[in-house]
């Protein structure tokens, strides 16, 4: 069921940079992308998710080339930096949206949705409007929404950036548990060394091209595999 994510020979001009990437993330592995603002970290996630076309190169899931597959058919979970919860739906409706799109019957998807809300400790907010949620709660809804459709890959864009330390710890715990239950390749953009130390397993190589010279921007992050 779980496959390796391959990013092969990606070259994408962003403003006056060229983002290049060539890496893979295996099942159950957690990888992080570091780097200063505006360097294309989010763009890389968006390319993998199918929200933006790659300039050159290809994206593979196992033996399937998904480079030209539309986003809605990739089944790649994405946790957005601003959560992007749907304001016109309540918490549960947000969580089960992916199941609804996949045609899962109402009773079944609500059952699954409630299970996930239980897991992210939000069951009592199931019918709440998303506007009433706190930052940490909203982030947990976003996690649950991405997880619930059993994605083939999970992408997280600075998921903890605006939260305080205590809540981060809690969310990391939730994330670890969830990932253990559904061990797909996971790729995270982060600023926080804590995220890196705990999660990073895969060496990534990103380069910018400027005036013809190539230099490394992202640091290599060790090679130990924990999961």
């Amino acid at each position: 069921m779980t496959e390796t994510l391959f990013v092969r020979g990606l070259r994408k001009p962003i403003a006056d940079w060229v983002l290049t990437a060539d890496f893979e993330v295996g099942p159950g592995e957690r990888a992080a992308i570091l780097g200063r603002s505006g360097i294309g970290k989010t763009t890389l996630l968006r390319i993998i998710a199918g929200l933006e076309p790659p300039g050159a190169g290809s994206i593979w899931l196992g033996k399937e080339d998904i480079t030209n597959l539309p986003a809605e058919r990739r089944r790649i979970g994405f946790v957005f930096q601003d959560q992007a919860l749907f304001p016109t739906m309540n918490v549960l409706e947000n969580v089960v949206f992916g199941l609804r799109m996949a045609g899962v019957p109402r009773a079944e998807r609500e059952k699954t949705g409630l299970e996930w809300l239980e897991r992210v400790r939000l069951s009592k907010h199931a019918r709440a409007r998303v506007a009433t949620l706190s930052g940490g709660e909203a982030q947990r809804v976003a996690f649950a929404r991405a997880w619930v459709m059993r994605p083939r890959v999970l992408l997280l864009d600075e998921p903890f950036s605006s939260l305080d330390e205590e809540i981060r710890g809690e969310l990391r715990q939730i994330l670890r548990e969830a990932h253990a239950a559904w061990p797909v390749p996971m790729l995270m953009v982060s600023h926080d060394a804590k995220d890196i130390d705990e999660l990073v397993t895969v060496p990534l190589r990103f380069q910018e091209e400027q005036g013809g010279s190539m230099r490394s921007v992202f640091r290599f992050l060790g090679e130990s595999r924990r999961s």
Binding site: A49, F80, D82, F86, T88, F97, A146
Partner: peptide, 25 residues
């Protein structure tokens, strides 16, 4: 746009994304 993209990552095709996310607005 971010909501439409979020809907796409959850498996909504453009038409459905529009009617589910944009239309209520």
């Amino acid at each position: 746009r971010n909501l439409l993209e979020a809907a796409a990552t959850l498996g909504a095709d453009p038409a459905r994304a529009f009617f589910e996310i944009e239309w209520p607005r």
